[in-house]
Nucleic acid binder design. Structure first.
Lengths: 240, 240
DNA sequence: TTTTCGTCTATTGTATACAATAAAGGTGAA
DNA sequence: TTCACCTTTATTGTATACAATAGACGAAAA
């Protein structure tokens, strides 16, 4: 019945608290505090910490404690550029096995997204939900569990930021348009176009995320060269 | 001084035992056995298990125990196709900031690899070492820590297999030739060529790995379609 | 002979207790 | 008043002890 250990449960709950923003970046997570919150003892909490650390959601300072991971502009850049590549790979793999029904499922997801946007006030949670369905269809078709795991992890790391991005009406419209075009390109079997659109979609999100980020941390983004910390579309032009 | 916790130490040691093949795939890792081996108590061992599980090196069956992860052909395919994309992205990013000195460092690594191959009996460990230096230079230049972490993880998962692959003289020669060409392409700034070579290099390794794998598990590789579980070079043609 | 049920044991899951360390605060002297 | 050092305290790191569960083995009945 209760197959999940308390450690796994705690991991999920703490993760949820982090990605929803209840636990803010930089905040220390004290073991005893979480013990009393979840009414369990410390070992499961510690195990949850270890897993969350591996996921990159918390950082551990030895003998100091664990803290919610902070996102610098560099971190944002890292996650989004990776997402651009991951999504392109997923799209390419998915198109190799996609059927007409799959294409229709994608279009249905886009239709749902359209419906949400068309009926103000826009329910962002709802939009996010259908948006996720869209990408989940693609990931499932791709058939690479490790790819899906990486995508999931990257999504967690920028979940708050990507949610905030949707509050920008212009970006919301652009996002919707992108997904409509991506679905069409995938249906028609135009792989280069689908990949280009996927890349452009993610890199546009990156640009917005960088502007949304509080500009408190002015650390350099790239160590070498004067490459700006932005959406270098050309740079991500590689052959999968 | 001893900044690392026993859990972190245990993780490293167990991981080393797994990737060197001392702990075989499918083998159960009993907590008490490792306790007596490392002369520590169970909590640090359990923490190490959690981290290794997140890395994908072990799988945990609830109330049963943890087992060294097994690699099916599907798993091999997943890891290598991901590596192909990861390495291409790394190469593309690296070339954007690469200096002449960096190019020379790459060529130096290739020279070391060449020297090892030229002096039989070939010291595979030594070759592997210089091979890793080559890719580490590229990853460092890429400047994406998350990308590096993913690459590291993927490398761990197929470390035994990739080592075994080197015992094939033909593949060893091909590997060397690839890296020489990749270094040249990166030096000349020919990004498409460098990416294509990276992809071809990894996908060739995939084909070999699939033949080397014991054919005990005949499970289907892809759920949908009749796509063969091989190096679909074209399929991985996407725009980073 | 086979199958099923029950007990038993080995192993994981959880809790409590103890040790060690690092940061914070206070006290002393310069 | 300020700085250095000591003491204290809060928090993590580790160990031991207990509980629960799943699998194995054996016995009994069909």
């Amino acid at each position: 019945m209760d197959v999940e250990s308390l450690g796994d449960l705690a991991q999920k709950q703490i993760r949820e608290l982090i990605i929803t923003g209840a636990f803010k970046p930089g905040q220390q997570l004290k073991e005893e505090e979480l013990c009393s919150r979840f009414q369990i003892s410390r070992p499961p909490i510690r195990e949850a910490f270890k897993m969350l650390e591996a996921e990159g959601l918390v950082t551990r300072k030895p003998r100091r404690g664990v803290f919610v991971a902070e996102m610098t502009p560099k971190d944002i850049w890292e996650v989004y550029t990776l997402k651009a590549v991951i999504y392109q790979m997923a799209a390419a793999l998915a198109m190799a096995v996609m059927t007409d029904e799959d294409a229709q499922a994608l279009e249905a997801a886009v239709a749902q997204m359209t419906a949400v946007v068309a009926s103000p006030p826009v329910d962002l949670r709802q939009y996010q939900l259908h948006h996720r369905v869209f990408h989940e269809i693609v990931m499932t078709l791709a058939g690479n569990d490790r790819l899906a795991k990486i995508e999931r992890n990257l999504r967690f790391q920028v979940s708050r930021i990507s949610y905030t991005s949707l509050k920008d009406p212009t970006h919301l419209q652009a996002s919707l348009a992108y997904h409509r075009q991506i679905a069409a390109a995938m249906k028609q079997g135009d792989r280069p176009l689908a990949c280009r659109l996927m890349k452009a979609h993610v890199l546009e999100a990156l640009d917005l995320a960088l502007t949304l980020l509080p500009v408190d941390s002015g650390e350099p983004v790239r160590d070498r060269g004067a490459a700006p910390l932005s959406a270098d579309a050309d740079l991500l032009e590689v052959a999968l």
